[in-house]
Structure formats: structure tokens, C-alpha cells
Computed example of a mutant assay.
Amino acid sequence: MREDRMHLGEFKVLTFDMYGTLIDWETGLHAALAPLAARAGREIPREAVLDRFAAWEIVQQRTTPAARYADLLAVVAKRVTEEWGVHASWEECLAFGRSVKHWPAFDDVPAALRYLADHYRLAVLSNVDNESLTGSLRRMGIAFDAVYTAEDIGSYKPDLRNFRYMLAALERRGFGAGEILHVAQSLVHDHGPANEIGLANCWIDRRHGQDGAGATGAPAEMPRLAFRFDSLAALVAAHKAERAAG
């Protein structure tokens, strides 16, 4: 669904958030935390697990912006399990941090990216370390033209530093900000800062029809959106329809 009067064909570069947009991180991180949650002696619903993860992840990203994501996740696991009254060994917390490479891609992603790669340059701007991302990239079905990680930059989205780093790198490759569409799920980590920095944005609302904000948390206010789709496949369908209409 188009929110503003923009056309997908206006852009030359699509920049993607990885986790939540291309990788089904809620399924992956919940599966990795579930064995620890099961020790609490009471049922902890999936949404409650995701909510506490979101709360502690953003605190830790602000507190230790230079930490590798896998190591940061280990601290998040430690804090969340402490809240549950669960003892988790440091090795178990580290194992959670190392689980990122095993988190699954959404089913529509490989085919959608292969199509989009025929029409755009594709890049990634991700809150992750390079080693973890390597496992996720194998699930994509294509090679991206550029990859920018929190480990490269030394800070985590929603810090505008990450977006400025990416825009400067793409400008050196000949692409201006007006030629870039940022495609992401997180309203907090991606769409809010995209508004602040003046970057056109496309919301892939992977949680459509679900209550709550999930593992990304809720924004203080709803960001402006250039486009909104329920899936990457829906974005592809809209692009095909736009081209067919001339």
C-alpha cells in the first residue's frame, strides 16, 4: 500500500534491515530463549518473552554501543532470565548470542530478493556483528551490493550515526539520498530515524494482525511512511503492477 505520492520506480537502491524484515528473528530468538523461559516454573507467553527481550536489547545497545551483537545478546539473555528468576550460566547466555546465524528467513525472501535485484541495487543496514550476519546472508539467495553492520559503525540503530554512515558510503558509490528507499520492519530502529534523516521508507509490517509490538518495541509516535506492505512478496507485487501500468 502506498502511503504518500511516491512510486517504487523512483528509486535506484533498496536498503534493508535484516532481522525482522528478511530474517524471522522473533521465531529465532523465541526458540533460543524458550528453554530458559521454561525453567521459570510458570508459563511465560511468547509475546511476554519478546517484550522483555525488546526492553533489554535497546537498553544494552545504548549502554554498550561498541559491543559485538552476539556478545550484547548474551548480556540481554542474562538480564531477561534474571527477571524471570531463572539461573542461566554464562555459557548458556553466550549460546543465545551465537544463535543468530541459525534464525530462519521468511519464506518469501529469497524469491523476492532475486526479483528486486534485477531492478535495484540492494544493501543491508543491520544491528548485528559481521560473523552472525554471515550465516543469515546464506539464507538470502542473492549477494547484496553492500552490507553495513553495527560492528562496522560502532553504534546501533536508531542512532542516526548508522544511517549517516550508510548514506555517505552509498554517496561515494554515486547514489544520492533521494535515490534510496529504506525497507524495514522496525518502527523504532528504522522508520523513526529514516524520518529524522529525510530518507524515504517502506514498512514491511511482518506483525500485521498481531497485538503488541513484539521484539522491536513500540515507537513514541507513529513514523511517516512512504509505503507499507505486509510482506516482501507484496512489495514485489506492487512493483510489478506499477511497471505494468507504465
Score class of each variant (00 low, 15 high):
62 R>G: 15
67 A>L: 11
75 V>H: 00
61 Q>A: 07
81 T>I: 04
72 L>E: 00
67 A>R: 06
74 A>N: 07
86 V>T: 07
95 A>D: 14
85 G>E: 07
63 T>K: 06
84 W>E: 11
65 P>K: 06
86 V>K: 02
61 Q>H: 00
95 A>K: 14
85 G>R: 10
66 A>H: 04
72 L>V: 01
87 H>S: 12
72 L>I: 01
82 E>P: 00
65 P>Q: 05
66 A>M: 00
84 W>F: 11
69 Y>E: 04
63 T>M: 04
95 A>V: 14
89 S>P: 04
87 H>K: 05
77 A>K: 00
96 F>Q: 02
78 K>F: 05
93 C>I: 09
72 L>T: 01
89 S>N: 08
62 R>Y: 10
79 R>N: 10
88 A>I: 13
88 A>V: 15
96 F>I: 15
76 V>E: 03
86 V>N: 09
83 E>C: 07
75 V>I: 15
81 T>E: 02
84 W>T: 08
65 P>I: 09
77 A>F: 01
66 A>E: 12
82 E>Y: 03
77 A>M: 11
88 A>C: 11
73 L>Y: 02
69 Y>W: 01
86 V>D: 04
82 E>T: 08
79 R>T: 13
72 L>Y: 00
63 T>H: 03
94 L>E: 14
77 A>D: 03
78 K>G: 06
89 S>I: 10
76 V>M: 03
84 W>A: 09
74 A>T: 11
64 T>G: 02
69 Y>R: 00
91 E>Y: 12
76 V>K: 01
97 G>K: 03
81 T>N: 03
87 H>N: 10
73 L>T: 08
78 K>V: 10
91 E>W: 13
89 S>H: 10
86 V>P: 10
84 W>L: 09
78 K>C: 02
74 A>W: 03
78 K>Y: 09
66 A>I: 03
61 Q>T: 02
95 A>E: 15
90 W>N: 13
96 F>V: 15
92 E>Y: 14
70 A>N: 11
90 W>S: 13
67 A>T: 08
88 A>D: 11
83 E>G: 10
66 A>P: 01
88 A>Y: 07
77 A>H: 02
72 L>P: 01
62 R>I: 03
87 H>D: 14
86 V>G: 08
74 A>L: 07
73 L>F: 03
71 D>R: 01
69 Y>A: 05
72 L>N: 01
70 A>R: 11
71 D>N: 10
63 T>E: 10
61 Q>I: 01
